[in-house]
Amino acid sequence: MKQESVKSPEQIEAAVYLYGDRLFRLCFIMLGSRADAEDAVQETMIRYMQKAPAFENAEHEKAWLITTAKNKCRDMLRFRFRHPQIDLDELQSFAVTPSESSLLETLMQLPDKYRLVLALYYVEEYRVEEIATMIQRSSSAVKMRLQKGRTLLKEAMRKEIG
């Protein structure tokens, strides 16, 4: 990636509106709070602005932002010495139906490594190999996390209903 000059205010605004929701979703899934997720998105956009790499295409740019956001969330989790405190009221504010609320709640109770791969695979629709590159793990590790994440999610949902 080549360095470019610092991005213009218009470019930054365009990037925030284009990628902001996607990054916020992933950060929220990892951190469990709106405020922390907003912090993480801001940190990611500042890094995007300062690093200003030249991307091959929009997909490349999106993947870079997601990886940076993921790393930022990891740093925040490490520094704060805690598991994310999930605010159920915030979670419910996003969901339109009770079943969506229940599903989000269940997702957020999984360990963050499963949440992230489930979100990248099922929501952002990345391939296993792409996820492996983003999270710096092998494709086998990603597949195992997907499988385990699916199992845990289904078990938890079954308990909810049962």
Partner: peptide
């Protein structure tokens, strides 16, 4: 079933416009 609904549910997690504008201002 849950996994099919997961995308729908998670895509509803969004930032407010105020938060986006705040981020843009802070970056600037």
């Amino acid at each position: 079933m849950e996994l099919q609904n997961l995308k729908t549910a998670v895509e509803k997690i969004k930032m407010t416009d105020d938060a986006k504008q705040s981020i843009v201002r802070n970056c600037q």
